[in-house]
């Protein structure tokens, strides 16, 4: 059973410099209890994709296609209906724990807010729930610490508190946007471990947006590789690390320290001025004449492994 199914999603922003095509025809499915990793370079539209699911983009953004959550098209819901989805059905954990909490409200207040909103609990009961949640994310002496402000928490604790907020109403899907950025490596490992445990326990599906392949390898069942605005390769985690097919995925993996630290040539293209044909051809070591003119489609190459490249077409 798929929890979330994205079909032909396009997200365009119009700016003074031209139209930014941040997401350009993405299809994705996330199943029950599945963790899907969305990986790609900075600026390839990962975060925009995440935000578009919850419809958190500004109103002048053009969003086309379908985002089906349990068969319901989120893009067709009213703002009122959407608010009931946010936090309760689909929650989001943001990139930067340091700025994602309100500095003037106590941690307890912020973690208990979702309970007040979605379960109609009174403040005191909601606070008890918040203490439970903080205990779950292993914050020591939570009943004391709920009275503290975010700046009194360390980065790792703040990120864990954010996870507690995200999981508060037991959503079916969590969108985690680079949840480990800005944390040091040992804390990253703790956070990853915690997320793994909590999603397993509550059988929550997760869309993990990251550029950290280590985190993706640790947490994800399947991985989708994104290159400006589109998915270029999709496979399960083991397969993609062992047997990357798309030249971009290969290059991406080769740039890892453990695999030779080879930098990829060139820069990822501007989202305003995308190249014709295959968007990767200017940087691709195997580029053919055909790649400059035609846009490749997603091809199934067996074992639930799909790739968008003419080499396999």
């Amino acid at each position: 059973m798929t929890v979330l199914s994205i079909r032909g999603l396009k997200v365009y922003f119009s700016t003074e410099d031209g139209i930014v095509k941040a997401v350009n025809g993405v299809d994705l499915d996330i199943g029950e209890n599945e963790t899907l990793g969305l990986i790609g370079e900075t600026g390839c539209g990962k975060t925009v994709l995440g935000l578009s699911i919850l419809r958190l983009l500004s109103e002048n953004t053009v969003v086309e296609g379908e985002i089906l959550y349990r068969g319901m098209d989120l893009l067709k819901l009213s703002e009122e209906e959407m608010r009931k989805i946010r936090g309760k059905e689909i929650a989001m954990i943001f990139q930067n724990a340091l700025t994602s909490m309100n500095p003037v409200l106590t941690v307890g207040t912020q973690v208990s807010e979702p309970f007040e909103l979605h379960h109609g609990l009174r403040r005191r009961d909601a606070l008890m729930k918040a203490i439970e949640m903080l205990k779950l994310v292993r914050i020591s002496s939570p009943s004391e610490r709920v009275k503290e402000y975010p700046h009194e928490f360390s980065g790792g604790m703040r990120q864990r508190a954010m996870i507690a907020m995200g999981l508060a109403c037991e959503p079916s899907l969590i969108i985690a946007d680079e949840p480990t950025t800005g944390l040091d490596v040992t804390i990253q490992a703790q956070v990853v471990e915690l997320m793994k445990e909590l999603t397993m326990r509550s059988r929550t599906s997760m869309l993990l947006i990251t550029h950290d392949l280590g985190v993706a390898a640790e947490l994800c069942d399947n991985i989708a590789v994104m290159y400006p605005g589109e998915i270029v390769e999709y496979a399960n985690t083991v397969e993609i690390f062992k047997n990357p097919k798309h030249p971009y995925t290969q290059g991406f993996l080769d740039s890892l320290p453990g695999r030779g630290l080879k930098p990829m040539e060139g820069m990822s293209p501007s989202l305003i001025n995308l190249p014709e044909g295959c968007k990767f051809h200017p940087r691709c070591p195997f580029a053919l004449e055909r790649c400059k003119r035609e846009h490749p489609r997603m091809v199934e190459i067996g074992n639930n492994h799909q790739v968008r490249c003419f080499l396999y077409d």
Partner: peptide
């Protein structure tokens, strides 16, 4: 424009709540 306001929206809060509870105290 701060992230915690986006966060509050992601948790499903309405405009009135966000203004009174999250913005005005700041």
């Amino acid at each position: 424009e701060k992230e915690f306001i986006e966060g509050a929206r992601a948790l499903g809060f309405g405009n009135l709540y966000i203004i009174t509870r999250h913005i005005i105290p700041n």
